[in-house]
Design a protein around this nucleic acid. Structure first.
Lengths: 342, 342
DNA sequence: TCTCGCTTCTGGATCGATTCAGACAAGTTC
DNA sequence: GAACTTGTCTGAATCGATCCAGAAGCGAGA
């Protein structure tokens, strides 16, 4: 038996396909009684409603936004940061009757198929990183997309915080406590001596912020040890070990992310140092583990960020690729205090 | 400027639309050199690849499975149970180049739109409950779907454990420790006196399992206090208070889910009772919090369950709506021991 | 009576791809 | 040399809806 379509119903009721279509999609366009009769017939014949694929093709609108996450879907949702962001996104998507398609980027070689074949009106690139293959796949798909958090790419709409200002604020706080011997851990490809104004990437911006604060407090950046490492807890651990072996030892370590800062805390513990009495440590991002570890860090307005991304994708396209910088918050916890030797 | 389609490329290269289509989807159907030329032209003209909506319409296959979760998306992913299940599902979906569309069921009145308009080949109803509105929406959509975990509905494929056997095993364990004064907390609509064979619903099956075990050990079910409550921690708390106020007080409380069992643990604590010395408590499901609370419970094969669901949806449709019962595991932790008065 | 406006319904064009039967040329087999 | 493969490409039909211009019917106003 052939599939039940609009035409099946139309023939049965004795009206045109258009009228049946209207019964489902534009109730004000036909007589209520006729509509009732059509819907009844549809239910009786087992019609499942207008085929979404056909409708999307004709309408040119899918009513779906794709959210491209990194490979670890469980992590993305365990993370309160991600859930808050998605809540904000869903909030603005809902009134436009748009739903969210959560997509991971599998390790698989054919990973880009998920982006190539997704039936969506646009994409959100959520917290990827520079050079992530999904970014190239998104470009090729030639649909609107917004990058949330990271990285910044010339000509692509972006929503995030002003990493430079936030980093400057964080470093200023440490310096105003009296710290003068700083150590920095980062995970960027950027040259830390390069002014960030002309570069892209959150890491470079954060380093630039640190540097500006140092200048402001009369600390010569050339004297600040800067260690580059892998973006992981272990990376932070190793880098911190390196910094703590210096003489004179830094009284404060600034990591460009919480993850590495957590590794640094472990290194301090292993070195027999008490945080914050012997050593202050700061992170960046306020990831879930940060609160437990009492880490001083920078927090972003997660839900509001999601809303901003949604608006960017759902509102009429802007002439210029817009970038939205959101506010941030300095979260002071127990990993920072006055330097010991004061 | 008109959108770039297959035809645009075909005209530019001077071949038919079919050939361009083949260049993308069936590379072995044309001369490699011509293919190269087509792909180059496509890239040059900014062609985004075959439109997924059009392809889906023509092919009649979306390459997507919809997973209907309850309203709390963050919970679903915080829950190791759900992530393990989804991992199994993704595992079998991947070889069929099928991806997963994670759908929530918003509180909103138009919630069923997400099911009506999803472009998918089938659905998974993940841990819903009897009477959940999504179930009716799924039925109306007339696509294949499988219910995972709960509830059981006549004629709808189901994957889960044999709740009755598992419950019987759990209760037998308690009884074999020597407990004779049991108390039961459940959250079902089912009549606990009804034999579960003819009923549906995991709750009824679990109660039936308890009852069978009681009979086996010579405990008269009529003497066992059974309290029905809301499915929440607080519900379990209130129900346990009720049971603990009885004289003689039960030496063991069996809850039909971990969530309620956790509430019961709190009630025991508040009543000044030590678990398990003064009171044994058991749950069901092995939710994340169960391990932390040291709760004795039943665990299901989560990943394997996901795989089974995936196979059911992706393999050629079966003549009979199949139900797959998986094995389970009795997890003995610190919330159970010999009864105090032995 | 004629025109206008409103409601209600129709038929054909269209969205952008895939499928299928078949055309054509070049090489193989007997 | 006829019959058969094989490789390569084409054109029309098709998937299931929505959109658009317009037609029919009907009551109101001039």
């Amino acid at each position: 038996m052939a599939r039940v379509t609009l035409k099946t119903i139309a023939d049965e009721v004795g009206v045109s396909r258009t009228t049946v279509s209207n019964a489902f999609s534009r109730p004000d366009q036909l007589n209520p009684e006729l509509r009732r009769r059509i819907l009844d017939t549809a239910e009786r014949m087992g019609y499942a409603g207008p085929d979404p694929a056909a409708r999307t093709l004709r309408r040119g609108r899918a009513g779906v936004l794709g959210v491209v996450l990194t490979e670890e879907i469980s992590y993305a949702f365990t993370d309160p940061y991600a859930t808050a962001f998605l809540r904000g996104l869903a909030e603005v998507a809902e009134p436009s009757s748009t739903s969210l398609l959560l997509m991971t980027w599998p390790d698989d070689a054919s990973a880009d198929a998920s982006v190539r074949e997704a039936i969506v009106d646009g994409f959100v690139a959520f917290c990827l990183y520079e050079g992530h293959p999904a970014l190239e796949a998104l470009r090729q798909r030639r649909l609107p997309y917004v990058i949330a958090g990271e990285p910044r790419i010339e000509g692509v709409p972006f929503v995030g915080i002003d990493d430079r200002a936030a980093a400057r604020r964080l470093a200023s706080y440490l310096l105003s406590l009296g710290h003068r011997r700083l150590g920095v851990i980062h995970h960027g490809f950027a040259d830390p001596d390069l002014d960030a104004a002309g570069t892209s990437g959150a890491v470079a911006a954060r380093l630039a912020g640190f540097r500006e604060a140092a200048a402001e407090f009369g600390v010569d950046w050339a004297d600040v040890p800067v260690v580059r490492t892998l973006h992981s807890r272990d990376g932070g651990h190793a880098a911190a070990q390196e910094l703590l072996a210096l003489d004179p030892r830094p009284t404060a370590i600034l990591a460009t992310t919480d993850l590495m800062a957590l590794g640094a805390l472990r290194a301090a513990d292993e070195a027999g140092l008490t945080v914050p009495a012997d050593l202050s440590v700061t992170g960046f991002d306020d990831i879930p583990g940060a609160a437990d570890a009492g880490l001083t860090t920078i927090r972003q307005p997660k839900t509001e960020k999601g809303r901003a991304v949604g608006r960017l994708l759902l509102d009429p396209p802007q002439p210029e690729a817009p970038s939205i910088l959101m506010g941030h918050e300095l979260i002071i916890r127990d990993s920072t205090s006055l330097p010991h030797d004061l």
